[in-house]
Each structure stands twice: as C-alpha cells, then as structure tokens.
Nucleic acid binder design. Sequence first.
DNA 1: AAGTAATGTTAGAAATCTCTAAGATTTGAA
DNA 2: TTCAAATCTTAGAGATTTCTAACATTACTT
Lengths: 162, 162
Amino acid sequence: MSVKKEKRLTSSMEDYLEAIVVLEKENGVARVKDISRMLNVKPPSVTSAIINLSEKGLVEHELYGYVELTLEGKKAALDVLRRHNVLFCFLAGILNVDPKVALEDACKMEHSVSPQTLENLEKFIEFVKDSSNQGKSGLLKSFTHFLKTGKRKRFSIGGIKQ
Amino acid sequence: MSVKKEKRLTSSMEDYLEAIVVLEKENGVARVKDISRMLNVKPPSVTSAIINLSEKGLVEHELYGYVELTLEGKKAALDVLRRHNVLFCFLAGILNVDPKVALEDACKMEHSVSPQTLENLEKFIEFVKDSSNQGKSGLLKSFTHFLKTGKRKRFSIGGIKQ
DNA sequence: AAGTAATGTTAGAAATCTCTAAGATTTGAA
DNA sequence: TTCAAATCTTAGAGATTTCTAACATTACTT
C-alpha cells in the first residue's frame, strides 16, 4: 500500500501547472517552448519541472511530445487559476490597482492565499459588485472618488438610493 | 566609487529583518536564539542569514553578540512590517478571516504585495473603517451579515443613516 | 574560580530551482 | 528524401536556503 505523502506544491510548480492549463485552453495543447515563453524561463527548466510534475502524477509527457495534465493535475491547476482570478478581480476591480500591477501581484500572491481568505474575498467581490447592476456600484464609485480626492461620497447597498 | 546594485531582498531575508525589528521592539535587543524560535528555523540558519544581511549593510553583528539593525536595515524592516500589518488589518478586520489564518496569510503575502496595491489597500481600510465611529461600520456589519446569511443589509457611508 | 548549561558558529550536506552548453529528435522545405 | 531549422533533453554547475553534527564561546551556579 503506497500512501504517498502529498507535499504541498511549491510556487514554482504551481506556476507551471497554471501555464499548462492556460495553454491548453488557448491552443488545445501545451508545449515546452510555450511554457518556457509564458513563464520566462529557459526550456531546460521546463523539462525539469515536467519531470517533477510527472513524478507527482500531475502531468503526462512523452519525450519530445506534448504535455498534458492528468485529472488530478487539472484540478490543481484550476485551483491556482481560481486564486489568480479572484485576486486579480479584487485588485483591479475593487482596489482600483493598475491592471498591469494587479496582474503581477496576483501572480505572486496566488501562491500564498489561504482557502479561507480566498472564499471570503470571493464573497466580498460578490457583495460589492452585485450591489449595482451597471458597472461600478455605489460603493466602488464612492471608493474611487475617495482614492482620487480623499473625500467621502454617500452610497448605498441594497438598492436604496440616498 | 562602489555603487552596489541593490537587488530586491528575498522573502527569507525579509522574514529575518521583520523578526529582528519585532524583537527589538519587544526586548530591546535581538538574539540568535529568539530569531530562531520566532521563525522556526535552527540557529545556524540564523547565523547564515545574519552574515548575508550584514554583507548587505542591513544589520550589525559582533560574534556571539546581539544583532542590530542599521538605519537602512531598520527602514527595510519597518517596510515589511507595514505590509504585514496592512494585510492583516484587511484580512482580519474587513474580510473577517479568522485571526490565526489572517496572520499566516499576511506573513506570506507581505513579501509579494506591490507598493501600489499596499497603498490602495490602506486607503480602502481607511475608507471602510472611518465610516463608523464605533466598532464596525455599516459596510462591515452588512458584509459580515452577508457572509453569514448570504443576504444583503442596507448600510451607509458618509454619516447618513438609512 | 571551575565546571556545566546555554548559546552561537563553522563545516558540510541536501533540496529546490534556475541556468548554459551540448547533444538528440522532430518538423518542414527544397 | 534529405538537410537545416526548430524544438526538446541531458549533463553539469551555481545560487539560495535550510539542516545536522561538531566545536567555540559565554553565562550561570555553586
């Protein structure tokens, strides 16, 4: 009975998984060259990573061929992607951080955000965004105004206009 | 003229700086043993780190003596601490994440949050918190309620009661 | 003051992740 | 089909960070 001790994936390995799932979505398949370009690492680093992920049962790979996520790998990759997206939405959509910066931050923070924080962040986004049907909610408008001027504007949640 | 190329500090080195500044605040001085305990690493790791930080001009250290931050080191350490505190405030105070989890997350995320995100986060905290004089603001109460029940409650910002 | 306990350092090894250089395989063009 | 370009892998080295084991120093205790 080989009960593998599942160590948490490193940030690096999560990056590779994420790149692979994104490439699969974009191109149907993931190739070493594209992973390399996407992550700004050299091809040998990708090969090493693939061997590593393959030993963990997260990807399948034939020499000189494509890289494919296993079911488990896909699950892990989508989890990273979800963290990324939630963080990006919050940073760019609520905190009003420049999208380029928000992207960079999301790419780094996605590896350290806990499930609980992620869940509450998702709910917070829902809470803030759903409170307006069109574009920015009152809260968002008010905060954006506060960011620019330092002054508060009234706003409402729950459909009650002030 | 030796113009050192100042590479960004690694997460690890930031952790050491942060521990040192916290210990200095608590005990007046920082010692290897305490840094070791605070960061959950063995003493030789601390010694290595101190040598590293010392080469960067961020700490001073006499063999078998105390560790002290230089001016530059203190500046860097306080910067990390500020990131930590802002993140913790947001997670625990606004997102309603369990303080223990919020602490862990802050400790990890503090190394990857950009200045712009940090600044906007600080303003967001100010925006949300200052909108009530006593404890949780309307927004906070409303979000907490939403977290628990999934239902929205009306609230106000700007001192206007609904 | 001497010896023991506590603390700190040195040396050297292991894990992780990246790179360069060089060689292998595949693809595509003539 | 054969050769050149593109792609991928292997081998080996370097950086970073941690550890254990052994040794050095300092601080107590009596």
